[in-house]
Amino acid sequence: MSTYRIVHYINQFFGQIGGEEQAHIPAEKRPGPVGPGLAFKQHFGGEAEIVATIICGDSWFNENLDLAKKTVLEMVREEAPDLFIAGPAFNAGRYGVACGTISDAVKTELGIPSLTGMYEENPGADMFRTKVLTVATSNSAAGMRKAVPAMAKLALKLLKGERVGASAEDGYLPDGVRRNFFEKKRGSARAIDMLLKKLSDKPFETEYPMPSFDRVPPMPAIKDITRATIAIVTSGGIVPKGNPDHIESSSASKYGSYNIEGVNDLTSESYETAHGGYDPVYANKDADRVIPVDVLRQYEKEGKIGKLHNWFYTTVGNGTAVASAKKYADEIAEKLISHEVDAVILTST
């Protein structure tokens, strides 16, 4: 029986090169297992082996992201492994982000199954847990003894194409996919256990977390609006006529940025709505009814506001569908900041 081939990614510390002072070292590849890789070996029981270990400095990876990804991907490709493992990174932030980034890249770009491990509060966990299976570990390297068998077990499942169990069963961080499994107790008994914990203010874990509704503290007011650059963002789906970016009418997977330099009024000849979530007749007739370009242009001329930002950003979103918007909202925010926008008028239908 041939053994499965695995490539393992670790940082300079676990590669026994050095601590923070060696974090700048570029990626290098060594044959066979190194450091934690040796611990993995005994849990593979001869069914799989680490054929190569890639060691990379955390600073170098994060500061040279594109180059680092390219370099490491190439090193992985040369080995043509059956599986890629990164970490575990425990609570080391940059190491966690590197593990998440590279295992996601190996999975999507090389089509090789990947696995990583980290502490749930590692920033890398939040960024990548829904993309790459991330085994839950403790917050320090002291948890290696527990992390390795859990990762090895999951690794063998992935290698053999076996069904991955629910996160609670196989010990990985919830990845947004609901999977069935049999609990030890029936539901009614679990409900009573949970209720008793809730009643005595002890921590309890809901089996289905509700979509979260967090809050952001309000930003300070604009001191002098007559000098402020104001941008328009809308979830009402206003786009140039013909919808050049093909923004979908519902649960849009993208957003549009459109230049309105020199546009004083939105007309039915040039603008419309791509939104499928409301009767489009009124917006198609006059898109100013959704984004008040006409008034803001006038105010810009009158000096009532400093400037109307020359781009507006549009998405399609129902008022209640919040979560999906997060990704492009972050991108829009980034653009607004780089354009030194001071305030935003966001309109929703």
Binding site: D214, I332, E334, A343, L346
Partner: peptide, 11 residues
């Protein structure tokens, strides 16, 4: 929220 979190006041 995302825009406000990035540091720009939103109405």
């Amino acid at each position: 929220k995302e825009i406000e979190r990035a540091g720009i006041p939103v109405v």
